[in-house]
Design a protein around this nucleic acid. Structure first.
Lengths: 338, 338
DNA sequence: GAAATTTATACAATCGTTTGCACACTTTTG
DNA sequence: CAAAAGTGTGCAAACGATTGTATAAATTTC
């Protein structure tokens, strides 16, 4: 019920001035040993903690970092938040959290709320909808550093951490090819979103590299709903020469595809090998996990991104001119076999 | 690059005192119309936002609420955080987020970090390990209101929001019984944790109510690993009279059980009906979702808990004596059929 | 032993905002 | 027309902590 103790209280109790207390707690050399010890002991006893809001006044920093993710319910983001959190904790930062729910409007609202709270920096994975970037201007204006992560903007002048899905896709095709599969189909996500474009590019280049012919009949797309995926699979199975391997846009699409394929009498991972992206946790429990899935290391990505941001913040505080204004880290991906 | 404008700047520009600016922005009646308009226009133009850290000084509140969840990667918690966030946003609060990863030590660390940041209140779902509560004392000491949510402490003098898994279990058994199932087995979680105890109690009372005999051979337990679940299922299937329905501790255990049952040649949801708890999102994609699952309404629970906390905070600020010091809300559960 | 130096502490301003009080000016009232 | 009431604004203190500068006392130096 008592209030959190302040420097003032300590000063009053020991009959010294607040400045003496402040200096004693910061181990200033000009404070007498007895005084210093008395103050430090009482501070410990009262469990004194400096008020970060007061310090913010002087130092102009709050040790709070905003984190905005599209949808924490997605396996990838729920894992990455742990990396983000651990890295922040380690450096004494706390995180203000918000979701955009893949809406640009919500993204804007959350950013505004965080700017109001005077965050030191922002770590953000953009919403699927985000194709304009003017709502991020206020951060620039107020000189709040931003690090983009996984879903990064297309322009160059930004700090980014992301992984090379493009190369991963090529590797996946390479591996399927080595398993003797030649008719590799692809169920992509909706047109227009960056993730679909990158995957498709990887697919086409991967196929080309293997000197296979690109057959656009082998490329279908889903709106990510179960029905959309079923439709896509129907078309692929109805081909004169149906595929002997199918890569799905992500593991959720994969699960729907496999479920429907079983229903259609396909011998899953025999007639057709199923591959996918993300390597979500439920794969462990699934009856038919993808034979190969692309792990994008969400924890590490989150950790790297937060460390990059803290690094920028520290340099900024130290007043150092940023030598490399826009850092980029491309995290390599890895194939996971089941 | 410019700094966030302050009340001082506005005052200087218009050649009035800071107090006049403050009053004008707060629509104080004693400020002249012309002055007020001039100030408000300039404030809008400069995009002025009051500094919440400065306001915290005067008002002793930060409009920041701490939220600690065991593991955001769990479907239940990733859904509930959305309800928590939406309710907070609606009332102008922002959330500081942390995970305990089901460790009491981490829980303590996170609580300390949040107290340091001077959160207005705390919303917490306790870690599985938490059986002592002394790390929550500092909150009490500093008069920071706490609302417990889903994983609530056993003592009475606390604000809680949780759901009645006990009654839900009874309903589940009732429903299975009406499907003609009489040999209803149960794969429970580890002994000792509250969730297991509550489920078991519901199971036993549900069976008794139906005038069925309780057969403890029908109750197995898993350590929540895939192997543990397989072991439990092995024992159940080896019984002289094997079960015709199996209720699993949660949907993850369910998925493992079904996967293994298929492997063992069981006709899933025919020979044996599978039921479960949680109603996780992947059920939508699963080949064999549980025939019936207990939805615990994570979004609503989160929302209710946050609203309760904000209500307490507002009343505290208004200085009103809290008439009902320890509120409780029991959220009813619902069976979801697939 | 007086001046110079060192040591230990206090004072006061600052950060951005709010708010009680005081002051000056205008208008109303008797 | 003087007193009372109303109107518009500024001053200053407060919140918690830091920090440059001032001041006092203790110590050293010549």
């Amino acid at each position: 019920m008592s209030d959190i103790p302040t420097i003032k209280e300590i000063a009053k109790r020991l009959n010294v001035s607040v400045s003496t207390v402040s200096r004693a707690l910061n181990n200033h050399p000009r404070i007498g040993l007895k005084t210093k010890e008395a103050i430090q002991n009482l501070a410990k006893e009262l469990n004194y903690e400096p008020n970060p809001k007061a310090i913010f006044f002087k130092q102009k920093r709050s040790f709070v970092i905003g984190v905005i993710l599209p949808l924490i319910a997605e396996d990838f983001f729920s894992k990455s938040i742990s990396g983000i959190e651990d890295a922040a904790m380690e450096h004494g930062y706390t995180i203000l959290f918000g979701q955009s729910h893949d809406s640009i409007k919500k993204e804007k609202t959350v950013i505004e709320a965080m700017v109001k709270q005077r965050i030191d920096g922002l770590l953000i994975s953009l919403s699927k909808e985000t194709n304009r970037y003017d709502h991020l201007e206020s951060l620039d204006k107020y000189n709040i550093p931003v690090v983009y992560f996984d879903r990064v903007p297309p322009f160059e002048n930004a700090c980014k951490v992301y992984c090379s899905v493009y190369e991963g896709t090529e590797q996946m095709i390479e591996w399927l090819f080595r398993q003797g599969r030649k008719r590799i189909a692809f169920i992509n996500g909706p047109d227009g979103i960056a993730a679909s474009k990158e995957r498709l590019k990887g697919y086409m280049d991967g196929i080309s590299k293997r000197k296979l012919k690109i057959d656009m009949q082998m490329v279908e797309k889903t709106d990510l709903s179960e029905e959309g995926t079923q439709l896509a699979l129907d078309k692929l199975l109805a081909l004169k020469k149906p595929p002997d391997a199918i890569i799905s846009f992500n593991d959720y699409v994969h699960l729907d595809a496999v479920k429907y394929a079983m229903h259609k009498g396909v011998e899953v991972n025999d007639d057709i090998l199923f591959a996918s992206y993300a390597n979500i946790s439920v794969n462990k429990h699934a009856a038919f996990p993808p034979v190969v899935s692309l792990d994008q290391f969400p924890y590490q990505q989150g950790q790297l991104a937060m460390n990059m941001l803290i690094d920028i913040l520290d340099k900024k505080q130290a007043g150092a001119a940023v030598e490399e204004p826009f850092q980029k880290i491309e995290v390599p991906v890895t194939l996971v076999y089941s």
